[in-house]
Amino acid sequence: MSKFNPNNVTPTTYSVDCFLCGALITDSKNTIVYVNNYFESHLLWKPDELVGQNINKILTKSSRIFFQSYLIPTVLHEKKSEEMQLIIFNGQGRKTPMTINAQINEEGLVFWSLFNATKQDQLYDELIKTREKLEEQAEKLKSLAATDELTGLLNRREMNYRSGLLLDQSLRSKQTIALLVIDIDDFKIINDTFGHLEGDRVLKELGQVLKNFGRQTDLISRYGGEEFLIMLPDTDKKGAVLFCNRLHTLIATVLVNDNPVTVSIGLTISNNAKSFLDLFTQADNAVYEAKARGKNRTQLYGDKGHL
């Protein structure tokens, strides 16, 4: 056997048919003008089935859209395109994923090289599935980490975080916001008299009342034991007081031993620059005042009388 000499290599000895990849040439109208032997030996097309036909013949419907909207524009604009993945039909109508490179010459002929990407495609599928699963899990965990388990409302951590954002946004757009601290009256008595399960039911039902009544943009949370915190964006004093009055009526539909549950509400309205902590302290002081004045009422921070 003679030693390999590159000078002996002639086009008649070795041709593009020797490579384990498809080679295809199209003209400026996307008509196929040449295919190498790979199309016959591996993709089971007869050359006369392809030459003279539009390249669409071997592309699946989705690949045609990719071909038109991405591949051809890229080739025309950049003069080449590399590592595109498309799906083509073989001569028997079977779909095969292919990695495709292409370049265009000055006459407008496009030279395509196609490589079987069946295994690579499986790998991509697995990676995509993993990514989707991770995204789904992350979303679930994020929601769990933000939600109070018993009531389904925002928990304290999430409320602190979102209140800060909402407050900043309101300050920027010069809108007033209202903050309400709602505390269930005599909750300890409910727990001690009727048991913790009954206490949990009250918390749950009250949470549902708040959720149903609030607007989509309101932040509604269970902030601690029997304490709920609500932030109402774009709400002035008049609107907030109406909201509180309505809440007292709605909450009274929650019954314990046939008696309506009552709450004390501390209310404050933001004006100019205030931190969330400042606002919370005001509303918290107001709720203590509401309790001191006999419960089952709303107290506006800084207001001498009750509402």
Binding site: Q68, S69, I72, P73, T74, G108
Partner: peptide
């Protein structure tokens, strides 16, 4: 690098 879907089959270099 997404060309507006879809310019069409008559993809003249000029148009692109």
């Amino acid at each position: 690098y997404l060309a507006p879907l879809v310019v069409g089959n008559a993809n003249s270099a000029e148009l692109i």
